[in-house]
C-alpha cells in the first residue's frame, strides 16, 4: 500500500529544504524546483524508481535525469531525503569548495546522473543510457524531467524523433508543464501548443496528469510502464503551477531564478508549515 500521506509530507519537507537552501545561498531557482517537487517525490518515493542510495552507481539502477538543470535544489533535496547523502550537505549549495553546485555536475554528488543547466540536453543523454542498457544487457528505465520552456529547444525534438525511431520504450519523459518560461507565459512567448499532438506525431505515447496530485502522478507512472511492450517511448505531461506551495510565488512568474528575501522566506516558511 502506498502511503500517500507520508509522500505528501515528504514533498512538504522537500519544499521547505528548497526554500532554506536557496534563501541561504541568496540565489537559485526555488519556483522552478517547487513546480516539479511532487513529480520527483512520486518517482523517488512512490516505489516506481529502482535505486540504491548506498550503491549510487549500481549498474541496474533506474536513471533520473534532471534535464531542467536549474531545478538543482530539488534534485539535491530529493537525493538527500532518499538517503544518497547527508541533509547537511544541502546548506552548502553554491558555496566555495562544495560539490552541491548551482547546476548539477555529473558524478560530483552521488545520484547526479548528468551535467545540465544548458536547457534541451537531457533527453539525448537518456537515449544514450537506453542504448547502454541494450549493449550491457541490463533492464533499467530512464526517466527524464523536462521543462515546458525547455521544449522550445531543437535538440528536444531531435531526441524525440530518435527515441521513437530506436524504439526506446524504457525511456520516459515527464514534462513539468507550468505554462511559464523565464520571461513570461509561454503562450505569449512561443507557440508551444499543441503539445500533446506534437509528441504524438513524433511517435511517443502521451499521458496527461495533475502534476501536484500524487495519486494521479503515480497512476500515470505505472500506466506508462505497463505500456512499454508497445515499443514506444512515453511522456507524461504533468500540469503544474510554477512556485507551487507558496501563494505569492505562484502568483508572480518574475520569481523565476530568484531566491526569496528574508521576509518573503519567513512568509513562505509559514505557509509551508501551515500545510502540514
Amino acid at each position: 500500500m502506498t502511503d500517500f500521506d507520508a509522500m505528501r509530507e515528504k514533498a512538504r519537507q522537500i519544499r521547505l529544504d528548497i526554500l532554506e537552501m536557496t534563501t541561504k545561498a541568496g540565489s537559485g531557482h526555488p519556483s522552478s524546483s517547487w513546480s516539479a517537487t511532487d513529480i520527483a517525490v512520486a518517482l523517488f518515493f512512490g516505489g516506481a524508481l529502482r535505486y540504491r542510495p548506498d550503491d549510487p552507481w549500481w549498474a541496474e539502477r533506474d536513471r533520473f535525469i534532471m534535464s531542467k538543470g536549474h531545478a538543482a535544489p530539488l534534485l539535491y533535496a530529493v537525493l538527500a531525503h532518499a538517503g544518497y547523502f547527508d541533509r547537511d550537505e544541502l546548506w552548502t549549495l553554491r558555496e566555495i569548495d562544495s560539490p552541491v553546485q548551482g547546476h548539477p555536475i555529473q558524478g560530483l554528488m552521488p545520484g547526479v546522473e548528468a551535467t545540465t543547466g544548458s536547457l534541451g540536453q537531457g533527453l539525448s543523454l537518456g537515449i544514450g543510457h537506453i542504448f547502454g542498457a541494450r549493449l550491457n544487457n541490463l533492464d533499467y528505465r530512464v526517466w527524464v524531467l523536462l521543462g515546458d520552456g525547455e521544449c522550445e529547444a531543437g535538440q528536444i525534438w531531435e531526441a524525440a524523433m530518435a527515441a521513437s525511431h530506436f524504439n526506446c520504450h524504457k525511456l520516459h519523459a515527464i514534462l513539468d508543464y507550468n505554462k511559464y518560461q523565464e520571461t513570461g507565459p509561454i503562450s505569449r512567448e512561443m507557440a508551444l501548443e499543441p503539445l500533446v499532438e506534437k509528441w504524438r506525431s513524433f511517435g511517443w505515447h502521451v499521458e496527461e496528469a495533475n502534476g501536484h496530485d500524487l495519486e494521479d502522478l503515480l497512476a500515470k507512472i505505472e500506466l506508462v510502464q505497463m505500456l512499454e511492450p508497445t515499443g514506444q517511448p512515453s511522456i507524461i505531461i504533468a500540469h503544474t503551477i510554477k512556485g507551487k506551495g507558496v501563494s505569492f510565488v505562484e502568483a508572480d512568474f518574475t520569481f523565476h531564478g530568484r531566491a526569496l528575501k528574508p521576509d518573503q522566506a519567513d512568509k513562505a516558511r509559514e505557509e509551508l508549515n501551515a500545510a502540514r
Binding site: 534541451g120 533527453l123 539525448s124 543523454l125 537506453i130 542504448f131 547502454g132 549493449l135 535538440q155 530518435a162
Partner: peptide, 12 residues
C-alpha cells in the same frame, strides 16, 4: 546535438 548527447549517455 542529439548525436553528442547520446554518445555521452553511452559513456556514462
Amino acid at each position: 546535438s542529439n548525436l553528442v548527447g547520446v554518445g555521452a549517455g553511452l559513456a556514462a
